[in-house]
Structure formats: C-alpha cells, structure tokens
Amino acid sequence: MPVFILAASAALGQAGSTGESKSTIHFKNGDWLRGALAAYDQAAGVTWCHADATAPLHFNTDQLTEITLDGTAVGRLAAGNLCEVQLVNGDHFRGNLAGATAQHFLFDTWHAGRMQLLRSTVRKIAPLPKGLKTIFQGPESDDGWTHGKISNETIGESGNWRYHNGGFHAKAAASIARDLGLPDSSHISFDLEWSGAMHLAFALYTDTLQPISLSTKENEPDFGGFYSIQVNSYSVNLLPVKKHTPLTYLGQATVPSFRKKTKARLEFFANKRQRLIAVAIDGKLVRKWYDPKGFAGEGTGIRIVHQGRGAVRISNLRVEEWDGRFKGPPTHPIG
C-alpha cells in the first residue's frame, strides 16, 4: 500500500499541472528529487519526470515516504465542526465533519473539498475545541529560526537543519530553534520521518536558542530551565534541565513500534499550572509526567537537536494553545 501523505494523494488528479516541475519525491533513505509527477498506479508505482532524465523514471512505492506537490496554497475552512481525523493507515488531516451515513463519514477539507470516507478506514474523529489560538503552523522556510552549532566530539561534525518543501531535514548533528511564545498550556504536534537510527532532543520552554551541552551545562552561558524530551529508536525520556541542578530523568516510555516504523505523528502537551508534560504518538498517549519540583521551563521557545544518527525530517509542525484535555486514554502507566 502507498505510504504517501494524504494531502499528496488527494491531489494526484492534478498530475502534470502548471507548477509541478518543483514538486518533490522523498525516499526512505532521506534522499529527494525534484521533478513532476506524471502518473501513479498502485501496481506499477510512481512515474516521475525530471529535466535531466531522457525518459520518465519509475519508482517502487515501497521506497518512498512522500510526494510534495508544489504550488498548492493552503486554504481556509469555513467555521464548522472542525475535527482532527486519523485514518487506520496512520494518515491524518483536519476538516469539518459534514455528515455521516451507515457506511460513510463526510468531511469538508481545504485540500480536497467534500470527502466521503468509508467508516472502516477511519480510526478516530476528535472534535477540536473552539477559541484556542494557533501560534505556529509550518514551516514554510527557515526564516525566523536560529541554527546552532553543536560542539560534541562523540556525535561527529556539526551540520545544519535544511529546509525543503515544507520540512526540516538533517543528517549530521544539527540544532534549530525559535522563540514561539509558548503559552502556559500548549500542544505541539509534527510529522517525524527517519531512516536508520534515530536520536532527537526537543527542548521545550527554553529561553536560549543555542544548543546546551548537558554534560558540561554548568560551563555554558547562563540559561533558564527547560524540558528536554529525548526521542530515540525505542523510547521517549523526559529530562528537566537547569544550569546548577543535577540532571534527573523523570521517567521513560518504551516505544517498541518505532523499530518497525520509519514515520510517526508526535504530539507534546504541556501545562505549567499542573507541572505536566505528556507525549502522544500516532494519536495514542504514551506517557504523562508530573514534575514534583515545579515546572522547570523558564522560556517560551523550542529547540530541536538532531544527534547525527541517521536521516530525519520534521514537517507539519503545529503549535497551539491547549485546553488541558487529551484525545484518548494513555497506553503506558502514568508516572
């Protein structure tokens, strides 16, 4: 079955339209290629045109992660029953629930108009609270983001996150950060794709946009406290970080499914008043942490650090106010 993101597959009927010479095909090993989508067939795969190729190129869909179609502007939905929709194959989108029958759900979307989906293809429909502010949605470029240099002999030469077609890519160790003005209660979500080993650290509520070496943090320039959510190929850890306080992990959630995947939808939840940080993966809440020493985050920024193992891509990043409610029950003991 194809592994393309839903937004791309919904637009397949536009293949060959003006502007698609800047479309991009993404491969599981982290490579990508510009060109134009000429055809798609479930059995034969993708037919791709490139200016430097004398004949169309053919790719097996098993080696692809995504096709990004250029030139499609994000539209706006009229006010309605806005929901987050998750499909059984892992795809997700937002749309207004327009109706339901014994066999189908109907959704109004900006990218495909009215969609009719079989009930058997829909895993979850989560109504979205009204009145909550969307703080950031993107990325559309790396403007406004700060690239940082990582100085650590154990993870090799430092590189940069590279923006391309709606996402940040990294192979070498790299750091990128931005002060997004995180509210006291926030919800951060994004698509993560990886090839090979995966080891990332997400600093939440940081007041510095430069990476911090945890092993020598006392020698770093002054910084306020933050939370480091560490995501690797088999688990998620939470670490409160303060300059002059010994490091103590608050607990680990094992994620065995990561070993069988190359992509996932991650969500981070935070609430200062409750001293709460939580993580969900593919719509399932895997862990909540309550910090017994009080909320450690002293800033309003985020920082994403790739430890230089494997290739990764982050896209569809959304930062919103959070009403404190979860969409589903936890799948891991709460600690």
Rank of each mutant, 00 (worst) to 15 (best):
residue 1 M to R: 13
residue 3 V to M: 07
residue 4 F to W: 07
residue 5 I to H: 15
residue 6 L to R: 11
residue 6 L to E: 13
residue 7 A to C: 06
residue 8 A to C: 14
residue 10 A to W: 09
residue 10 A to Q: 07
residue 15 A to I: 13
residue 16 G to P: 00
residue 17 S to N: 11
residue 23 S to R: 06
residue 24 T to H: 07
residue 27 F to C: 06
residue 28 K to T: 11
residue 34 R to N: 01
residue 35 G to H: 06
residue 37 L to A: 10
residue 43 A to M: 12
residue 45 G to K: 06
residue 49 C to T: 11
residue 49 C to H: 07
residue 57 L to W: 02
residue 60 N to A: 14
residue 62 D to Q: 12
residue 62 D to L: 11
residue 62 D to K: 12
residue 63 Q to H: 03
residue 64 L to H: 02
residue 66 E to I: 01
residue 66 E to A: 07
residue 68 T to S: 13
residue 74 V to C: 04
residue 77 L to R: 02
residue 78 A to Q: 10
residue 79 A to L: 10
residue 79 A to G: 02
residue 79 A to W: 01
residue 81 N to K: 15
residue 81 N to E: 15
residue 82 L to G: 05
residue 95 G to V: 09
residue 95 G to F: 12
residue 98 A to G: 14
residue 98 A to V: 07
residue 100 A to Y: 03
residue 101 T to H: 03
residue 101 T to G: 10
residue 102 A to H: 07
residue 102 A to T: 13
residue 105 F to N: 15
residue 106 L to T: 05
residue 108 D to T: 15
residue 113 G to Q: 05
residue 114 R to A: 15
residue 114 R to I: 12
residue 114 R to N: 12
residue 115 M to N: 01
residue 117 L to R: 01
residue 117 L to F: 03
residue 119 R to C: 05
residue 120 S to P: 13
residue 120 S to C: 09
residue 122 V to E: 02
residue 123 R to N: 08
residue 124 K to A: 15
residue 126 A to P: 00
residue 129 P to D: 02
residue 131 G to F: 08
residue 142 D to G: 04
residue 143 D to K: 15
residue 144 G to C: 11
residue 144 G to V: 12
residue 145 W to S: 07
residue 149 K to P: 00
residue 153 E to I: 12
residue 154 T to L: 15
residue 159 G to P: 14
residue 162 R to A: 06
residue 167 G to D: 03
residue 169 H to R: 14
residue 170 A to M: 11
residue 172 A to S: 13
residue 173 A to T: 05
residue 177 A to K: 10
residue 178 R to G: 02
residue 178 R to V: 10
residue 179 D to Q: 13
residue 181 G to H: 06
residue 182 L to F: 12
residue 183 P to Q: 05
residue 184 D to S: 15
residue 185 S to P: 00
residue 187 H to V: 09
residue 189 S to W: 01
residue 193 E to A: 14
residue 201 A to G: 15
residue 203 A to M: 11
residue 203 A to R: 09
residue 205 Y to D: 13
residue 206 T to R: 01
residue 208 T to G: 05
residue 210 Q to K: 08
residue 211 P to Y: 04
residue 223 F to L: 01
residue 223 F to H: 00
residue 223 F to W: 00
residue 225 G to S: 04
residue 229 I to G: 00
residue 233 S to M: 06
residue 234 Y to I: 06
residue 236 V to L: 09
residue 238 L to R: 04
residue 239 L to C: 02
residue 242 K to P: 03
residue 243 K to C: 06
residue 252 Q to S: 14
residue 253 A to Q: 08
residue 256 P to L: 05
residue 257 S to F: 08
residue 261 K to Y: 05
residue 261 K to S: 12
residue 261 K to A: 11
residue 269 F to Y: 09
residue 273 R to K: 15
residue 275 R to T: 13
residue 277 I to Y: 03
residue 279 V to S: 14
residue 279 V to W: 05
residue 282 D to N: 13
residue 285 L to N: 02
residue 286 V to A: 05
residue 287 R to K: 14
residue 291 D to G: 01
residue 294 G to V: 04
residue 300 T to N: 04
residue 300 T to P: 00
residue 300 T to R: 08
residue 302 I to C: 04
residue 302 I to Y: 00
residue 303 R to E: 02
residue 303 R to P: 07
residue 305 V to P: 00
residue 309 R to Q: 14
residue 310 G to D: 01
residue 313 R to V: 10
residue 323 D to E: 11
residue 324 G to P: 10
residue 326 F to M: 01
residue 327 K to W: 04
residue 328 G to V: 04
residue 329 P to Q: 06
residue 335 G to H: 02
